[in-house]
């Protein structure tokens, strides 16, 4: 791990953000994996506590906007504990298919077990995959969702290009991610919450303040609404737009493959 205050332009190219720190690009995936290995078992409980259950509402709107229908193929990247995949499994029916993908084996194990418990089995595949190099055929997926996952990807532009490649023409990508609050007052409250309360909750419930500090820092490092919109357009997505939710704390970006 290196500190960004002393980095040269050459080092900038070879490093990426990990929270507020700069790390070697090759090391980030392993470090993110470490964070999620640590929180996997209590990930859903912590999400409920940290967001007051609102993450379910954000995901509900994501499912609405996906307009997924019977028989379609849906890829849920960074699907973690499988809450979106379980809903998609019902929507696509037995003729369709849902692929739950995550780079982290611990999260996938939790997700797979949850899906079995919910009875979502016949039409769900669980795949350990890197969003930057998706192991799927070109033009094979109708809808891709990535909820609270893009900010952990080392090369976001590369991941967006990879998603565009596997989408069918007309298919859509939905990126649900923490973003930038639209009001200054909300932004200040949100900062206090993220850097004071969140790590304390992580320490109390998951006995892991550092992982939750990383989550808060990684949210601040993530591109804001307009920047991510531009990144999607540069990657080749068409008709890109976004919806701010809860005052911009979270944004849902949508783009189509032309």
């Amino acid at each position: 791990m290196t500190d960004d205050t002393t980095s040269t332009p050459h080092e900038e190219e070879n490093t990426t953000d990990f929270g507020f720190s700069r790390v070697n690009r090759g090391d980030k995936a392993g470090m993110v994996r470490g964070v999620f290995d640590s929180v996997a078992g209590r990930y859903d409980l912590m999400n409920d506590l940290m967001s007051g259950g609102i993450h379910r509402i954000w995901k509900r709107f994501t499912i609405e906007l996906s307009a997924v229908r019977t028989g379609q193929t849906v890829l849920d990247i960074a699907g973690g504990t499988g809450d979106l995949a379980a809903k998609f499994s019902r929507l696509v029916g037995p003729e369709g298919q849902v692929i739950l993908a995550d780079i982290n084996a611990a999260m996938l194990t939790v997700g797979r077990d949850r899906l079995i418990d919910k009875g979502a089995t016949g039409n769900v595949q669980v795949v350990q995959a890197d969003a930057q190099a998706l192991p799927f055929d070109d033009n094979s997926i109708d809808c891709i969702t990535i909820a609270f996952g893009l900010r952990n990807v080392t090369d976001k532009a590369m991941a967006l290009r990879s998603m565009l490649r596997v989408l069918r023409p007309g298919g859509r990508l939905l990126v649900l991610e923490f973003s930038t609050p639209t009001s200054a007052l909300l932004g200040k409250l949100y900062d206090q919450y993220s850097f004071q309360i969140l790590p304390a909750m992580g320490r109390l419930i998951a006995q892991d303040a550092e992982s939750y500090r990383y989550l808060a820092e990684s949210i601040r490092q993530h591109p804001d609404q307009e920047t991510l919109l531009e990144m999607m357009e540069v990657a080749g997505f068409a008709n890109c737009r976004y919806h701010n939710m809860t005052g911009g704390v979270v944004a849902l970006h949508q783009g189509f493959k032309a």
């Binding site: 954000w58 509900r60 709107f61 939710m245 005052g247 849902l252």
Partner: peptide, 15 residues
């Protein structure tokens, strides 16, 4: 962009 906060509407509709 939508006029209403989708999270608020979604929460009400969920209930």
């Amino acid at each position: 962009m939508t006029q209403h906060d989708p999270a608020l509407i979604s929460a009400a509709l969920a209930g």
